[in-house]
């Protein structure tokens, strides 16, 4: 019994002392911090966001993001702060400019091209079919005629 109580107390004490490493003024700040660290890209270990990476620069960027969020800065302000220093590269959502325009245009262009080709081919196909059909018909007619003419 003693051990049971001790175990329960031990387990409880862990839960009671559980404390967040980073403290925020409110939930919206915490959400902002989470979403920002998820979409900012680590310049050192590329293809990891700064929340996942433990590179020195990612640790510093997390710290800076935390400070700026705690100061009450908006999402765009924090993003601008990082982009000013590390370039568009650092944000996983690239802005729309003359270099990135093709990312949006290419799929649309490809789809248009594909649809255009399909429609073009389809518009030709029935004509083609009709031709062979009438050709076949005349051929059949001739065969029937020949067959009939053989019979007395």
């Amino acid at each position: 019994m003693k051990y049971l109580i001790a175990t329960v107390l031990l387990l409880l004490s862990g839960a009671l002392h559980a404390q967040e490493l980073l403290q925020f003024d409110n939930d919206s700040q915490r959400d902002l911090y989470r979403s920002l660290t998820a979409e900012l890209r680590c310049p050192q270990c590329q293809n990891q966001n700064i929340a996942d990476s433990n590179a020195i620069v990612a640790v510093d960027m997390r710290q800076k993001t935390y400070e700026l969020v705690r100061q009450g800065q908006e999402r765009q302000q924090v993003l601008d702060y990082m982009i000013n220093r590390y370039g568009d590269f650092v944000h996983y959502q690239p802005p729309l400019n003359r270099y990135t325009l093709w990312l949006w245009l290419a799929p649309v262009l490809m789809l248009t091209l594909l649809l255009g080709t399909a429609i073009y081919r389809r518009s030709r196909q029935p004509q083609h079919n009709a031709d062979t059909k009438s050709e076949l018909n005349t051929e059949l007619d001739q065969l029937i005629k020949r067959y009939r003419s053989k019979k007395p």
Partner: peptide, 12 residues
């Protein structure tokens, strides 16, 4: 504190 490095865009 690597503040200047962060401002310069140092990645490592």
């Amino acid at each position: 504190e690597r503040r200047l490095s962060l401002d310069l865009g140092v990645s490592g």
